[in-house]
């Protein structure tokens, strides 16, 4: 077996983190992306810029501020603990919070694009046919934006799998709790264990490429079936 128990644990933490993060992002990102695609509000550019920030910021900068905010002395961490919440730094929960912020643009932007591409017309048609707001969203917007959801989910998942800087800053390197694949690889390289680093790095490469291939393949199929 080329993978140690420690490696398998890191893989499991990574998959759990990416899965949970993607789920949270789809739940939060859908209404946010819908609002951004429809609003003519003046604060829209402000929100859009804030959402896109993780695209350009060094993960260490993001991780540093998250650490300051989420630590028990920080403004957010203090209140969460005062209200009986979990510790947010050096814990799996903290990683999820950090990852949600870190991967936000990768989910919101494809969704916003897909919603904008649908336009106002199908929604208006549904309204004139008697469909209420939620009905319109579920029966018209969701099916028409499905390629956006596939893209958003895969990019959000893949990007979270690949994160390193933010995790290191707020999660540390606790095996079974906060040690993810990218950090395990780093450890192997530090220890000059190149064979094990190869197995993990190669696996990650293949996994990421496979997911992206699935997205582009699916989008091509959607593009063909859409008029």
């Amino acid at each position: 077996m080329p993978l140690s128990d420690n490696d398998l644990e890191a893989l499991w933490v990574t998959l759990r983190l990416a899965g949970l993060t993607t789920l949270v992002l789809l739940l939060l990102g859908t209404p946010l992306a819908w609002w951004l695609s429809r609003t003519r509000c003046r604060v829209k550019p402000l929100i859009e810029a804030a959402v896109a920030l993780p695209l350009v910021l060094p993960p260490t900068v993001l991780g540093f501020y998250l650490l300051v905010m989420l630590s028990p002395q920080g403004p957010v961490g203090h209140w969460v603990q005062a209200l009986g919440g979990p510790t947010l730094v050096f814990s799996f929960t903290g990683l999820v919070v950090g990852s949600v912020i870190y991967s936000l643009p990768f989910v919101v932007q494809p969704l916003q694009g897909a919603f904008a591409a649908i336009g106002q017309r199908p929604v208006e048609v549904a309204a004139t046919l008697g469909a209420g707001p939620l009905d319109r969203f579920v029966t018209v917007v969701l099916p028409l934006a499905r390629h956006g959801f596939v893209t958003a989910a895969v990019l959000g998942f893949a990007h979270t799998v690949g994160e390193f800087g933010v995790v290191l800053m707020i999660g540390g390197n606790i095996p079974g709790e906060t040690q993810v694949l990218s950090i395990a690889i780093y450890d192997h390289v530090e220890a000059l264990a190149y064979t094990q680093a190869h197995w993990l790095a190669g696996g990650l490469l293949v996994l990421s490429f496979g997911m992206l291939l699935a997205v582009y393949g699916a989008n091509r199929r959607f593009a063909v079936t859409r008029p």
Binding site: V125, A127, P143
Partner: peptide, 29 residues
């Protein structure tokens, strides 16, 4: 609200739902 007005609206472009068949579009209504 528009969805409570008993109207039928035909737009300049047919604007059928592309994800439904013709029957699906009719049943939706």
């Amino acid at each position: 609200a528009p969805h409570r007005r008993p109207i039928g609206y035909v737009f300049q472009e047919a604007s059928l739902f592309p994800h439904l068949t013709v029957r699906g579009n009719l049943d939706y209504a």
